[in-house]
Design a protein around this nucleic acid. Structure first.
Lengths: 177, 177
DNA sequence: TATATCGTTTAGTTTAAACTAAACGTTCAA
DNA sequence: TTGAACGTTTAGTTTAAACTAAACGATATA
């Protein structure tokens, strides 16, 4: 294959790896996604091993995560036991899928830990000396709880949006007004 | 101090640590922020060492990062060589500050790496056999470039918003319509 | 000038995440 | 029924990030 094509792919994959790592995913996961995204045909596990240069085990686990997040798609071919993976260009959907996955776990958990702290303070029978501190805690914890709730709402709303509305939001932000 | 108050604080700090770690920051950084956020008075470095239970060096570096991101504020007292740190409740501003810092580095860099790949493909004199692949690459890379540009616009817009407009956006999303 | 008190930096260590190599279970074809 | 071709799992290793302990420079105080 043409060396420029190869160079372009390598540059791209390196970039995606970095982004992946930056957002808390393994670098290899980004590289795998990059290879799949830039392939005209769905790729098999062994082809990914060859292209990305990591072990079969690592490709297997990373590919599974990518699939769970609905970032890539799995394909079967009749009379072929291999699995093939592809990616599409709908990034907004991809982002939504990631958010959906994260909301289920971390967003929710963050909110709960603040709420629990608040509950403890609210239910504590504060003796005179700590009353002031308790009030301060309540105020601060409530503020954060409120913020998390708003954030949760935003995420939930974005997830629920259909593509038409996503477009309108893009317009909303894009116009810079 | 009242044991419930202590329990509430520990629960809170553990939660914030987890969030911090989840978004790619050190756990200790979250713990430090949590301690500062929940303190009625600005805290000194040594007080943080005591409250959070990590070494002075670690507190020093983490606190510096927090300050660089404008997540906490530094205070001086006359006739006192210690530095004191406080946090406020304006989370939207905090998020904006984090985004601002990240946009300068990673957002920008992501966009550039895709653009560079695209440039390589565009400038390559593709021989017959790879022409189709080159076209596919161009299409895919352009799609991602476009997406990144939109994302960059959104982030830049959010950063540029004043608080009034942030409120309106919160309303926009919060209504769930 | 000597000493104590700061925050920072550095060298070395710890730790947790992510990888490799290899064994494994399953499926299918000969 | 044997063996090849899959993807997955596991035990062990590597690696990079983040920590600790201690030295350090700077500044204030006695």
């Amino acid at each position: 294959m043409d060396s420029d094509i190869i160079k372009a792919r390598e540059t791209f994959i390196a970039g995606i790896s970095r982004i992946s790592h930056f957002w808390g995913f393994p670098k290899a996961m980004g590289a795998i996604y990059g290879a799949i995204y830039l392939s005209p045909e769905p790729l098999s596990l062994d082809e990914l091993v060859k292209q990305v240069g990591i072990s079969k085990g690592a490709v297997s686990t990373n590919v599974r995560t990518l699939e769970r997040f609905k970032i890539i798609n799995k394909h079967y071919k009749v009379g072929d036991r291999k699995d093939y993976y592809s990616a599409d260009k709908n990034f907004w959907q991809t982002i939504k899928n990631i958010l959906k996955e994260r909301e289920k776990t971390e967003f929710d958990l963050a909110l709960r830990s603040v709420s629990e702290s608040l509950k403890i303070v609210n239910e504590s029978k504060t003796d005179k000396s700590d009353a002031e501190t308790a009030e301060f805690y309540k105020d601060r914890l409530q503020s954060m709880q409120s913020f998390f709730n708003q954030l949760d709402n935003i995420v939930a709303t974005v997830i629920a949006l259909d593509d038409l509305r996503v477009t309108s939001i893009k317009k909303l932000f894009g116009k810079k007004n």
